[in-house]
């Protein structure tokens, strides 16, 4: 488990991160979400010990982080780049050795990973000869080759085509089953929605909301249903239960008062109109995100 307690990072009188606390358990994907410049990368860098916090603590399995902690983390930074003039296998082995792997072990693991990501034919090529997507795969390998306990991925899918995105996504899920701690930083809400069980929404260095994704959706999603029908639906606008109504030809989106249960509302309207479809609308994380940021 990794715990971040009351983290503050001040850069020349501005707070990049202002009193942030969270914890991530093994076997979960923790989504660190926020718009550009919200403080995501600063938070990650502090956890990684790249920069020192102005105040606050980072604990790993209940203890302050020590030097060998560096060997247990894998980091995929947002901006990618490797030694372009060097050979693929050399670069992977170098980074693996920096994580304290032996040379022989590093070579055999590197070959396993190149094979798994279907790029073993580029083993002895220079990095600059590879396509951008394949270079990203190499970078991904350098982040996970040493089987770290804590993995931090900053925008892991940026730059990948849909097929490769799927491949990476499956890999990340396999890390979950292996009990890893994963922190995923992104501003792509759809990605977060598909992967994360816990999220932390950050804006201007401060926490906006955090917790279980399903709970947050219930809390901030509002109470929406959609119906499809035949006939006249104008009576809906005069109902007490309805807050807001968008009617189209044979389709309507209805926002209900918070205390109204959708199933009760269905019983109320089912005799008044010929319904062809009724469903509760799950709010997207994206809309919650935009709403919350705008409220702030």
């Amino acid at each position: 488990m990794i715990e971040v307690q009351n983290l503050v990072k001040e850069f020349q009188h501005t707070f990049a991160v202002d009193d942030i606390s969270f914890s991530v358990k093994s076997g979960t994907i923790f989504g660190l979400l926020g718009p550009n410049g919200a403080g995501k990368t600063t938070t990650i860098r502090t956890v990684l010990n790249i920069i020192k916090p102005t105040s606050g603590k980072v604990l790993f399995n209940g203890e302050p982080i020590k030097k060998d902690f560096l060997n247990k983390i894998g980091y995929l930074p947002e901006e990618r780049g490797l030694y372009k003039k060097s050979k693929v296998i050399d670069v992977i082995v170098y980074f693996a050795q920096l994580k304290n792997m032996s040379r022989t072990q590093a070579i055999s693991e590197a070959d396993t990973w190149l094979n798994r990501l279907n790029i073993k034919q580029y083993r002895n090529n220079k990095l600059e000869e590879l396509s951008k997507g394949n270079q990203q795969k190499i970078q991904f390998i350098t982040a996970v080759i040493h089987n770290p306990d804590l993995m931090i991925f900053d925008e892991p899918f940026a730059g990948f085509d849909p097929i490769n995105q799927q491949e990476i996504r499956e890999l990340i899920f396999s890390f979950i089953s292996a009990g890893k701690i994963i922190i995923l930083s992104t501003h792509q809400m759809e990605t977060a929605e598909k992967l994360c069980s816990e999220i932390f929404l950050i804006n201007k260095g401060k926490k906006v909301t955090s917790g279980n994704l399903a709970r947050i959706k219930r809390e901030f999603g509002g109470n929406h249903v959609e119906i499809k029908f035949n006939g006249n639906a104008s009576f809906l606008s005069s109902m007490n239960e309805v807050v807001k109504l968008d009617t189209y030809n044979n389709y309507a989106e209805i926002e209900l008062k918070d205390e109204v249960e959708p199933s009760v509302f269905l019983k109320q309207i089912i005799d008044k109109i010929e319904l062809t479809h009724f469903s509760v609308i799950e709010p997207t994380l994206n809309s919650i995100f935009i709403n919350l940021i705008e409220q702030n």
Binding site: R45, L48, N49, I50, K67, L70, N71, I73, Y75, P77, E78, E79, R80, G81, L82, Y83, F95, L98, K99, T142, A143
Partner: peptide, 14 residues
């Protein structure tokens, strides 16, 4: 520094 490799290096050694 320009390709941020330094971040990976610093998260691997002092």
């Amino acid at each position: 520094k320009s390709n941020r490799l330094i971040e990976i290096l610093i998260s691997s050694c002092s």
